[in-house]
């Protein structure tokens, strides 16, 4: 499903923010990605979401090596990946329904099919009564659920979430994590980046721990109790 081999990444001529990253995610797995602030979590997610290319090493997604992809191949690959951003990245002028429908519309699906699926999905994430609401009128938790619905409407094989519970209370965060679990149960590979060590402990899934651009995989029990203010 996902394979990184000695991957490095830098922005422009700057220093490497990721160094010698190697890991493998099997289909249907559920991983947390954590580490102190500035460790490179967002950069790693950018590589997974095909929003950046690695500076070196091999990234293989869905059995295709990313560096060999031509530009026209990228949209089809990205439709297999759902991304949930901490800051939601919804289009404020579109309703919840239109935001969620966007990936299907872009993929060229027929209108009737789009809106039937979208309505069902919004019902599933608990926003059945908010389909016409625009993002500025929604709470943080509601926006995040719209973002999740948009990320999964194409039934992606890989779901990436960057601090999905960062902008909501613990109870809402827990409910969102249960949504991810449900998606994982139907075969979606899930990677959730989070600072929330308590949540990682609670769910018990494997953890990819990033520090100073280096990645290690460990069980939740081997994580530090907390991250210090200076990112150590």
């Amino acid at each position: 499903m996902v394979r990184f081999e000695n991957v490095g990444m830098r922005y422009g001529m700057g220093p490497e923010v990721l160094r010698d990253i190697s890991f493998h995610l099997s289909p249907g797995s559920f991983h947390f990605l954590t580490g102190p602030t500035g460790a490179g979590k967002s950069s790693l997610l950018k590589l997974l979401a095909l929003s950046h290319r690695p500076s070196r090493g091999l990234v293989t997604l869905f059995n295709k090596e990313v560096s060999t992809l031509v530009r026209d191949d990228l949209p089809a690959m990205r439709r297999k990946i759902g991304v949930v951003y901490q800051e939601f990245r919804l289009l404020d002028h579109l309703s919840a329904m239109d935001n969620v429908a966007l990936p299907l519309k872009i993929a060229g699906a027929k209108d009737a099919r789009i809106y039937q699926h979208v309505a069902e999905l919004l019902e599933w994430v608990g926003l059945g009564n908010q389909i016409d609401a625009k993002p500025p009128t929604l709470s943080g938790g509601e926006k995040q659920r719209v973002a999740i619905a948009r990320a999964v409407i194409n039934r992606p094989q890989l779901l990436i979430a960057d601090e999905p519970t960062g902008s909501m209370d613990a109870e809402m965060g827990l409910r969102l994590m249960h949504l991810f679990q449900e998606l994982n149960k139907i075969g979606t590979t899930v990677v959730v980046a989070t600072h929330d060590l308590d949540m990682i402990q609670r769910f018990g899934n494997p953890v990819m721990f990033l520090k100073d651009g280096l990645l290690t995989t460990r069980g939740p029990e081997k994580l530090p109790r907390h991250f210090s203010e200076n990112g150590a």
Binding site: S51, R78, R79, L91, L102, I106, A107
Partner: peptide
Amino acid sequence: AEVIQVLHLIGAHDKY
């Protein structure tokens, strides 16, 4: 740029 990036990441072709 930001919306364009979102459109790209949810699978939009350049011509779209």
